[in-house]
Amino acid sequence: MAFELVVVGTSLGGLSALRNMLRSLPRDFPTAIAIVQHRHKDSDIALTAFLQQFTSLPVGEVEDKTQILPGHVYMAPANYHLLVEPGIFSLSTDEPVSYARPSIDVLLESAADAYGERLIGVLLTGANQDGVQGLAAVKARGGATIVQSPETAECPVLPQAAIASVSVDQVLPLSAITAHLIHLCSPAGR
């Protein structure tokens, strides 16, 4: 069964990691990508515009009930949790999870529920544990799991915590993560 969604979580250092990741994805990358980057609750849309500079894949901030389309990049908006349902996104202002809203755990857990083994979960550089539980859920539902190798991460706390508590499929430096995603999502990938 082909992968239909990639979910990515990152906090500290995430901006440059995301930039590098998106920059090396081909314009015909076939799979939808949803991203939680921890950010201040008052930050505005600039993050989306910033990342759009580095890719020809359309990057957009999610509005409630946005349809999930292949080859699109979706950013969680500031101050909302981003949740995945089969085929669409939902938002929530539920209380922050480990101080974070959007929370990586919320995105990954709901995506694991909705997409099961058609999901790839990716954790990049990050300064806290948010995302670890989510990645465990991705793994438990049969999805693929990838973590940035701690020595290549601007902030290794999140990658280390993930590796310590989930038996992650691939631990890779950033450049190799992109290549691996391209491989997994190609028709022959699985």
Partner: peptide, 9 residues
């Protein structure tokens, strides 16, 4: 109600 957030609640 939206299923994913209901389940979380």
């Amino acid at each position: 109600y939206a299923a994913a957030s209901l389940k979380r609640r």
